[in-house]
Simulated assay, not measured.
Amino acid sequence: MAKSIDYGNLMHDAMRGLIRKVLDGIKPNGLPGDHHFFITFDTMHPDVELADWLSDRYPEEMTVVIQHWFDNLDVTDDGFSITLNFGDNPEPLYIPYDSIRTFVDPSVEFGLRFETQEVDADEMDDDDEALHPTAPQADVSTLKTTSADATDKGPKPSKAAEIVSLDKFRK
């Protein structure tokens, strides 16, 4: 049994569940109003599926924009697949929730950021270390962004981001 409650992983699971519910909600009728999403993900994640030319161009991370045109959105418990347009070339992608680093909806100044930080091995017993080699730090951010297209490196805040870090509440 763990010596403490793993709030970081619990928060990450809840935040990924929120992303799944949002994507599942837009599946039948598309995005309502001005909503659109910037999703930055780790292209090196073993379960990410994307065209070779995209992984060559973005060897570490990539930000996609879900806004005006997308097709074949399929939302599962582990991730989602979607076809997006890259310079008039429709490309299918599969993005596992575990690979997501940020999720931003600039229309309502909402954002989530997933981070991990290393933990001293002395702080964990053998069972904890086997299950959780890194301890996540969950940040819930409120961002103001400018628009970007699917090939941009990511959303750029137009003013300083207000970030609430869970580290404030740790002992």
Rank of each mutant, 00 (worst) to 15 (best):
V75W: 00
V64E: 01
I100M: 07
R101E: 07
I95V: 15
P106K: 05
E115A: 12
V104W: 08
P133S: 05
Y97T: 02
D56N: 09
F110L: 14
A121W: 11
D127F: 06
F80Y: 10
S81Y: 00
F103I: 04
N85I: 04
S81A: 10
E109H: 13
F110H: 06
S107H: 08
D105V: 02
S99D: 00
A130S: 14
F80G: 03
I95K: 03
V119L: 09
T63W: 04
E129N: 14
G79Y: 00
Y94L: 06
M124W: 15
T134D: 04
T116R: 08
P59Y: 15
L112K: 12
L131G: 11
P59N: 08
Q67S: 09
E61A: 09
F114D: 08
R57L: 07
L93P: 02
R113A: 14
I95M: 00
T116F: 11
G79H: 07
T83W: 04
S55K: 07
D71P: 02
Y97W: 06
V108H: 15
R101G: 09
D128H: 15
R57K: 10
E123W: 10
I82L: 00
S55A: 07
F114W: 13
D127C: 00
L73N: 00
D78K: 13
S107L: 03
D127P: 03
F70T: 02
Q117C: 05
H132G: 03
I82A: 00
I66K: 00
I100W: 06
Q117L: 03
L73T: 00
N89S: 09
D98N: 11
M124N: 08
P106L: 11
D125L: 13
L54Y: 11
A121G: 03
T83G: 02
E129T: 13
L112F: 15
E91P: 03
D125F: 13
P106T: 05
L73P: 00
G79F: 06
L54W: 13
I95W: 02
E91K: 05
F110A: 08
T102M: 10
L131A: 14
N89T: 08
F70M: 11
F80M: 05
D105L: 03
L112S: 10
F110M: 14
V65A: 12
T63R: 04
Y58L: 06
V119G: 12
I95L: 05
F86G: 03
T102D: 06
L112P: 04
I82K: 02
P90I: 03
F86M: 04
G111N: 07
